[in-house]
Design a protein around this nucleic acid. Structure first.
Length: 423
RNA sequence: GGAGAGAUGGCCGAGUGGUCGAAGGCACUCCCCUGCUAAGGGAGCAUAGGGCCAAAAUCUCUAUCGAGGGUUCGACUCCCUCUCUCUCCGCCA
């Protein structure tokens, strides 16, 4: 959520900023609702003040044993006017709040202009795509024939966009998770957390998935209306919701492995083949909670931690600065990491690292208190480190050999009983 | 699933219809005192929003004692619903 003060005082400026994303802010409507709110709030508060004063007078009169009838008569009608005024004010504030929750974050000035993913700007590259002396297969052709990846079983058990991994593939998948978590906790200084895979609407509102993106989520049909998490960013970031963190405890750095569930509504026909776009996938996430002045450095550091995983796996990648039109709702700036997939002859997204500034913190009321100071909003960041399914894809395709065998990356071999090849 | 207890400020904990944003204690901040190291004295110490202002502070108003409704001139105090926590029984990985 944006600072309501900014929304009140610099609507034009905010609207101009948001236009970079292609978001149209209804300035006239906001201004009109705001001026109504201001007036209504003043009269409501004045009526409330009247009520308090009169009630106190009655209390005092009664304590002195005086007749309170005349005073009661004086109050007559005040209650009804107050109720009406309060109701109108609440309705108006709900309207304003509903609008505010639908407004995306303001982009950082360093975010490149642009409309969609074609306008993203490459920042750097690491590694050189391997030259194959044969035509590299894609991961489906490598994994499906020998039963490592069973898409038929996935669709039988559930439906499309689900998969069953078997034997060495299931184990490599697990090895990747262990490797990523161990690296982040042992080398990058993260605290590992285990969290619920179902969350309530408050949590999703806090990180910005609700109210705008409900169709992307799986909602449970239980009484509480829980949702399956689309990313561990939601439960992990919400750990600090409604909290005031002592300054000395910052920065908080969490890493967490969870499955992620996404409806993929609107992506019909996109990546229908293979593991790349599933309704359920595993992800190791990195979350930072920092003081405002540290968040931009944190974004760079966090991105480098995601890169470190790709480097350790010796997978070629590039880093993109997402353009204005492609940056997500809550983010002020995002770097995407794209890994090279020989089967597609393309770089494909495998991590996304974002600084949301105080956008999520304001929705969550997540604050910190400096020594003797007032509580202030923290800044929150999140990044994948990495998407496990896609990393598996990248390993298969990059480490394949002409006979169809797949080498195991050096750093993963200890997790695979020292094996050099998938068997 | 059944029975019971509870939810108050950073923490503990009073408060059962009126002047309570809330006693007291702890923690914390500042000052004083003290040569002695979990000693004493004093002051301060919730959050959010509105108004005022160029802005901030001050000032002022409002809201908040788990959440939402209700009763009342007035609710932390009474009534209803819900959520969460704890205890016991049952069931269970």
């Amino acid at each position: 959520m944006l600072d309501p003060k900014r929304l009140r005082n610099d609507v034009e400026e905010v609207a101009q900023q948001l236009a970079r994303r292609g978001f149209k802010l209804d300035v006239a409507r906001i201004q009109s609702l705001e001026s109504q709110r201001r007036e209504l709030q003043s009269t409501t508060q004045e009526l409330q003040n009247q009520r308090t004063l009169r009630s106190k007078a009655i209390g005092q009169a009664k304590a002195r044993g005086e007749d309170i009838q005349p005073l009661l008569a004086e109050v007559d009608g005040l209650g009804e006017r107050l109720v009406q005024s309060e109701q109108a004010l609440n309705a108006l504030q709900d309207q304003i709040q509903a609008i505010a929750l639908m407004i995306p974050n303001i982009l950082d000035s360093t975010v490149p202009d642009g409309k969609d993913e074609n306008d993203n700007v490459e920042v750097r590259r690491w590694g050189v795509p391997r030259q194959f002396e044969f035509t590299p297969k894609d991961h489906v052709d490598l994994g499906a024939p020998n039963g490592w990846m069973d898409f038929e079983a996935g669709s039988k058990l559930t439906g499309s966009r689900f998969v069953v991994l078997r034997t060495a593939m299931a184990k490599l998948h697990r090895a990747l998770i262990q490797f990523m978590l161990n690296t982040h906790t042992e080398q990058h200084g993260y605290n590992e957390v285990y969290v619920p895979y179902m969350v309530n609407a408050d949590s999703l509102r806090g990180t910005g998935q609700l109210p705008k993106f409900e169709e992307d989520l799986f909602k449970l049909n239980n009484e509480q209306g829980y949702y399956l998490i689309p990313t561990s960013e939601v439960p992990v970031t919400n750990l600090v919701r409604d909290e005031i963190i002592p300054e000395k405890d910052l920065p908080l750095r969490f890493t967490c492995h969870t499955p992620c569930f996404r409806s993929e509504a609107g992506s019909y026909g996109k990546d229908t083949r293979g593991l790349v776009r599933q309704h359920q996938f595993e992800k190791v996430e990195m979350i930072w909670v920092v003081k405002p002045e540290e968040s931009w450095q944190a974004l760079e550091t966090m991105t480098s931690h995601a890169e470190a995983i790709l480097q350790a796996l010796e997978l070629p990648y590039r880093v993109l600065a997402l353009c204005a039109g492609d940056t997500g709702f809550s983010a002020a700036k995002t770097y995407d990491l794209e890994v090279w997939l020989p089967g597609q002859q393309k770089y494909r997204e495998i991590s996304s690292c974002s600084n949301t500034l105080d956008f999520q913190a304001r929705r969550m009321m997540a604050r910190y208190r400096s020594e003797g100071g007032k509580p202030e909003l923290v800044h929150t960041l999140n990044g994948s480190g990495l998407a496990v399914g896609r990393t598996l894809v990248a390993i298969l395709e990059n480490y394949q050999e002409s006979d169809g065998r797949v080498q195991i990356p050096k750093v993963l071999q200890p997790y695979m009983n020292g094996a050099e090849y998938l068997a």
